[in-house]
Design a protein around this nucleic acid. Structure first.
Lengths: 347, 347
DNA sequence: CTTTGGCACTCCTGGCTTCGGAGTGCTAAT
DNA sequence: ATTAGCACTCCGAAGCCAGGAGTGCCAAAG
């Protein structure tokens, strides 16, 4: 219950308006409520209540003499306080299990497939951040010469290969030197957290082997890209599902969305803060912090590798989305994914 | 000149209709032609000619008493016989050079960036197939243990790291065994074409080292995925550019396109046959072999690594696209990309 | 035989009006 | 506090009209 008086009946009416609007995409009228849901009062009473809910900011009217539509605040209290959490339907549960079970064993592909699955199930746009290097453990580095003065540094982490970096050297360095250097680095860094390994470690080893700054630079760069800056790669699927929603009958609404999905950066910004929380996060309309996205909402849940959250699974859809269902879907999918990762036959 | 009589004037009129329609997106009227282009004849004459062009299948009328619009056949003869090839504008040339020059040195990222660049320049949807393993040379394989009985096989080719494959073993194998096996494989396969290296090579080396079938299987799988089946990965960029085109005012047209771009497979099928040709390819409307795409066209040019075409750069846009300009753009971009690859500081 | 001016005819487009219906807000009665 | 009743607002679909753009065809001219 909210402080500015959301008595039980108001709460019920608000919840019902959200529910009905989500289902129909039409502004909800007082009569609709009294007819479809048994409120035990007349439509006139409901009208009064709705007027008050509007005054309090939970509902808005598209125009005089139209039904009511939830505002951002309305959705917010619905999500936080009013809605019934849903469980995954048995059918969905089965599909998730089956599809993830048959999925590949490469981490990247697994995330891609999970995203596509979630896109299909949610009939919305699903996206996922791929694990960032920070949370991984260093396993192995291998320096390989592929041309006289060109080489590639490959960093393998606990998730599997995660980065490679080309480098050029000023002088020829023989393959043996590279092999020795690789071994020395491995000895020093094995099993440490990627975030712990500093440039100093590399510098020390390189110096020890009597090699130059160009080699050091290359390795540092490879580690850097394994740690993979602030914005990890993002997988997305199901854009076309959004087209079915009446809110996108107007093509202009789509442009910004398409651009944002292609850019990835904005998507990441939206979900970045959800990473720190173990719980699902819901962002509604203007909460996304982007005017172009103000009639969309996003549901985000983290997925784990062992005890740590290593990425986020999200669903982006119209603000008028079935929050309870999508939360269940996203959580269930993330859980299956986490389990699949923990089972250890993936990486 | 075509056999069923395309005299010079008809050819000119057809070319002009295409040109004008591409520019305006409006059906072209006989008067428009006589006014904007000096034909030296009256609009009545043009009307007669247009009627004949329509009878011959080059033009169509959206409805009686509307101007004419080119048919697929009309565009086709325009592209094949009538249009003036364009050169890259100096501005575009500079942008291509500059942006590709600053681009990353990782092959995958370079293709991504090139695609985005082409999307921006063409104001259409650009996409590119990434190089398939077949055309690469084997450089190095490295087997690395990342957990007691789990390892990863990394295959490095002349383009750089191109595949990794996780594997599990039935019995513990010590790191030294893996290292020795790696060396033996390297000795045997180095610098051979990926397509030449058969399972037999692997089997021989594995047997020689006295290791089991599980190891062999893992390596074969890694090579397999480095060769990367029939459908290579595809980078795409600029979907939102299509929204500006009047042909997509209707949202339904977009759905199939979005789905197809997300699926990738269909995109690949469209351009697959262009791989064998050195020349740019244009596919118009129904030539795409897909009803849902029947008012789109695709321009495809191969890019090379050394003497070999290793991938395709394409532009997908409305059938009413500026063919000459897009051909110039795609060719110019592909050429710059090829040169960048040949210069050897990428891979 | 080709070209062209003229003209009737077709069909689309945009604007305007109209009308019905859906909903509300308010008031007065319960 | 609830509710029946009613006036009022506003949207949206339907219909209608006028204007205009463009064609096709014919008959005359080169």
């Amino acid at each position: 219950m909210k402080q500015p008086g959301l008595d039980e009946r108001k709460a019920y009416i608000l919840a019902t308006v959200v529910y009905e609007y989500v289902a129909t995409a039409e502004p909800v009228a007082s009569q609709t409520l009294t007819q479809k849901y048994n409120l035990g009062v007349s439509s006139a009473t409901v009208r009064n209540e709705m007027a008050e809910l509007e005054a309090a900011g939970y509902l808005v009217q598209p125009h005089t003499s139209a039904g009511r539509v939830p505002s951002d605040a309305g959705y917010r209290t619905y999500v936080d306080e009013l809605m019934q959490p849903e469980a995954l339907t048995p059918g969905d549960r089965r599909r998730i299990r089956d599809e993830l079970h048959d999925a590949t064993r490469e981490l990247d592909d697994l995330i891609d497939q999970t995203t596509r699955l979630l896109g299909r199930l949610s009939k919305s746009l699903a996206f996922a951040t791929k694990p960032q290097g920070e949370t991984q453990r260093f396993k192995h580095v291998q320096l390989i010469s592929i041309a006289p003065r060109t080489g590639v540094a490959i960093v393998v982490t606990s998730y599997g290969v995660s980065a490679q970096s080309l480098f050029e050297l000023k002088a020829d360095v023989c393959a043996d030197d590279l092999t020795r250097l690789s071994s020395a680095l491995n000895a020093r860094c094995a099993n440490r957290l990627m975030s712990e390994i500093g440039d100093a470690d590399v510098a020390a080893v390189v110096a020890e082997q009597g090699l130059g700054d160009d080699v050091r630079g290359a390795i540092v760069a490879a580690l850097q890209s394994a740690r993979a800056g602030e914005a990890p790669e993002i997988a997305a699927a199901g854009t076309q599902n959004l087209l079915d929603q009446p809110e996108f009958a107007d093509v202009r609404k789509l442009r910004s969305i398409l651009r944002i999905v292609e850019e990835q950066r904005t998507l990441y910004d939206i979900v970045a803060d959800a990473m720190t929380s173990e719980n699902p996060r819901v962002k509604i309309g203007h909460e996304l912090g982007n005017d172009e996205l103000s009639d969309l909402s996003v549901v985000t849940v983290p997925y784990r590798f062992g005890p740590n959250a290593i990425g986020m699974l999200s669903i982006l859809g119209p603000r008028r989305m079935p929050y309870a269902r999508l939360l269940a879907l996203a959580s269930g999918t993330a859980e299956s994914l986490s389990r699949r990762l923990a089972d250890g036959d993936v990486r």
